[in-house]
């Protein structure tokens, strides 16, 4: 397994070098600085989404779920459309992006906590109840969003639309410092919980028997997921299936169920897919197809595959 990790680190480094250097014309110092900040953003997104998905799958005990199913992204879009609707597109674009991101993170955290407090009362199978509530709420959020989008001015609709799709080429790098800080805090939190997550993945009965009742961990994990998801949505917009693609590959490649192995591997794989894919798209193939379309397409296929396999 050490070999696989080393290979993945090498692959990621290669991808990063290719991303920085391929097709660079003109002043190198400008190109490198410009691309390095985008690279940093891509790496942050890889890290945040892969870890959020891994720990979400652990506490839900399901390998086909991603945080998107809880309506985290839908809530983000609703907030965005409400904001544009109430203060107008121009005023929205004049808002400080850091402030928006912090507000978004805080909102997602409190939504997760409220969901947790209201739905997760003592009892059995409450995790499933919470997921279903999340699914229903995300439908509600999406309907409200589409209502707002129908009454909104067409020009402002364009502002919302631009922000509603994942974008890996056109990243707002002014958010980097805040995003890095939040990811670091959440990442340390997740790493601190890694052994407890191992026990939780044994299921509610065994983890309770071993002194680690899942209920105690769930709210902490939900908060960490909220932070990680808000980091990635702020940087590149909502992404649904990318995390699923990453975790499926990770479980395929890493023959371990310890989070101390899975978490680093997932982040590496996510980085290879995003940075490598973006390099291919932008520099090698010179395609205008956004990477998000390809990634979501592949992730969707993986989702269908996992779903069909579990039905069999």
């Amino acid at each position: 397994m050490q070999v696989r990790i080393t290979l993945m680190v090498a692959a990621l480094v290669l991808c990063c070098l290719a991303y920085l250097s391929l097709g660079a014309r003109g002043d190198w110092s400008f190109v490198l600085a410009f691309r390095a900040s985008k690279l940093a953003a891509l790496l942050l997104v890889s890290f945040a989404l892969s870890w959020a998905t891994v720990i979400f799958q652990t506490i839900t005990g399901s390998r086909i779920l991603t945080p998107a199913i809880m309506g985290f992204d839908a809530l983000f879009l609703l907030l965005l459309s409400l904001l544009v609707w109430s203060i107008g597109g121009q005023a929205y674009q004049a808002l400080p992006v850091q402030g928006l991101m912090a507000a978004n993170a805080a909102l997602l955290c409190s939504a997760a906590l409220i969901l947790f407090k209201v739905v997760l009362r003592a009892g059995r199978d409450n995790m499933m109840q919470m997921i279903l509530t999340g699914v229903v709420l995300s439908v509600l959020f999406r309907s409200l969003t589409s209502y707002v989008l129908r009454v909104i001015d067409p020009n402002e609709y364009a502002v919302v639309q631009a922000a509603s799709f994942a974008r890996f080429s056109n990243i707002d790098t002014s958010l980097l410092t805040l995003a890095a800080g939040l990811s670091l805090v959440a990442g340390l939190g997740v790493w601190h919980l890694r052994h407890r997550l191992d026990v939780t993945s044994l299921g509610p009965v065994l983890s309770t028997s071993l002194g680690e009742p899942p209920q105690r961990l769930q709210w902490q994990v939900l908060i960490l997921i909220s932070i990680l998801v808000s980091v990635s949505t702020a940087l590149v917009g909502p992404v649904a299936f990318f995390g699923l693609l990453v975790t499926s590959l990770t479980y395929l490649i890493i023959p371990s169920s310890r989070h101390a192995d899975i978490l680093p591997a997932a982040a590496l794989i996510a980085g290879i897919i995003l940075v490598g894919g973006q390099t291919m798209m932008e520099r090698v193939l010179d395609l205008n197809t956004p990477l998000s379309v390809v990634v979501e397409f592949l992730g969707g296929l993986v989702f269908l595959f996992l779903l069909l396999r579990s039905l069999r």
Binding site: S201, L202, G203, V205, L206, T208, S209, S257
Partner: peptide
């Protein structure tokens, strides 16, 4: 310690 029949483990 408790063991139950419906244990499903990774």
């Amino acid at each position: 310690a408790i063991l139950r029949q419906d244990l499903t483990v990774a």
